[in-house]
Design a protein around this nucleic acid. Structure first.
Lengths: 102, 102
DNA sequence: TACTCACATCAATTTTTTTTGATTTGATGT
DNA sequence: ACATCAAATCAAAAAAAATTGATGTGAGTA
């Protein structure tokens, strides 16, 4: 059931998805931690945020799908980092302070 | 039932709201039309978008609340325009092409 | 093999957002 | 006052997203 859309609307749909990924405090917080601390072990992330495992997984997946973050798997551990390039494509430089407070 | 939040989280909450306002194709389309055409009469907007009155009203309110657009009332007609300053505060310059295609 | 640990995924529920159609408000004209 | 049009608002329904707790998977380890 593809919605009717022209060329422009296709890109609007993509942007809708980007903004949706960003429209949640927990996910913004995740991005900020990753941008600030760099490569981070998932469990550390969970503790910092006070999120249970399955909830964290859910939100990480949303950010992953939009390519705002990436994973590296080492053995049974996962390390996440922010894709600052992708983030910068979307956000104004002013909003960078959101991810690099101080 | 205020959620527990520190100073930083308050601003994250504000940004969550901004991004939420932007995370919808129809609203992005509204912004694009307003940014491209300038001050626009609501009914014209409705026709361009193919949105019924009450749905349009709903989405305009969300953009208004976040200050991405503003209204001027003249008699019984309403004219809307984009607040490009507010938009630029949030979006990267790359994303401006989203609102000024061509 | 069997037992953990780290993590993803799933299904059921709850919460939030959006849509719909009807009603209300407010300005204008008769 | 009454009718009309522009537009906001409301309440109910539908749709989408988030939460929860349980289960599954896959890598290490005993």
């Amino acid at each position: 059931m593809a919605k009717q859309m022209g060329i422009c609307d296709t890109t609007l749909f993509d942007h809708e998805k980007s903004f949706k990924a960003l429209s949640d405090q927990k996910r913004l917080h995740i991005l900020r931690i990753l941008a600030t601390k760099g490569r981070t072990f998932v469990c550390d992330l969970g503790e910092l945020l006070g999120l249970p495992q399955s909830k964290l997984s859910y939100h990480l997946k949303i950010l992953l799908d939009m390519n705002f973050i990436s994973v590296e798997k080492e053995g049974k551990w996962n390390y996440y980092s922010a894709n600052s390039n992708e983030i910068k494509k979307v956000l104004s430089s002013d909003l960078c302070c959101l991810f690099y407070p101080e």
